[in-house]
Amino acid sequence: MFNLFWQTKTNWSIITPALFKAISETLYMVSLTLGLGGLFGLILGCILWSTRKDSLFSHPVFYKILEFLVNLIRPIPFIIFLSAIQPATIAVVGTSLGTNAAIFPMVIFCTMATSRIVEQSLINVDYGIIEASFAMGASRLRTLFQVVIPEVLPPLILGYAFIFIAIMDMSAMAGTIGGGGLGDFAIQYGYNKFNPLITWISVAIILIIVQFVQQFANFLAKKLLRRS
């Protein structure tokens, strides 16, 4: 039976364009999600952190509610969330199928995950520098944007690299609703056609993309950390 896999003829004239299409779909989904979800997550994370007790805009009740909402959505398996949110996707994107329809739930999920990572990074900020900023007459917003966020940039960058991998994971699942991408490609041409070579090509490409992003993030974070 195993031998059968290897006897499958790989028709490169069909596979190659499909592969490139899959790569571009993945990059499209992932970069759009990272851009939008990363931005919304940054904002949400800052709101979470700054409304904590004794923080810049301390508001424990507001914080509790927001935290509850984030924690409510985050543990849902993404593939279930994808279908649970279908009505909202149709309302916002106009359709529940295709690449754009896949991006909507990805952005929401990414926002939630990013917010928690941003909040965690901000928690580690030394209160002394916040106090120093206040002592010089800075407002709370200025302190947040010009002191606190720059201070946590290195861990934030690493956090975003982590998020990036999570988005790659989501994008593969998004293939199931016609989102396309490398996940879909691997299932369609690899798994369903008993051609593991195709699956492995997808795996290799995903690994290359992830490694590239991770190494770049490491480099950037290190460079910022070693500021001399």
Binding site: A132, A135, A138, R142
Partner: peptide, 30 residues
């Protein structure tokens, strides 16, 4: 606060900024 400088035990400098930018910060606020 513009009229009162504060010096801290643990310095509380902004590590993300250069020495120059650290000193410039209160001027920017003012």
């Amino acid at each position: 606060r513009k009229n009162i400088g504060f010096v801290f035990q643990h310095f509380n400098l902004f590590n993300s900024k250069t020495v120059y930018r650290n000193i410039e910060y209160p001027l920017k606020i003012a």
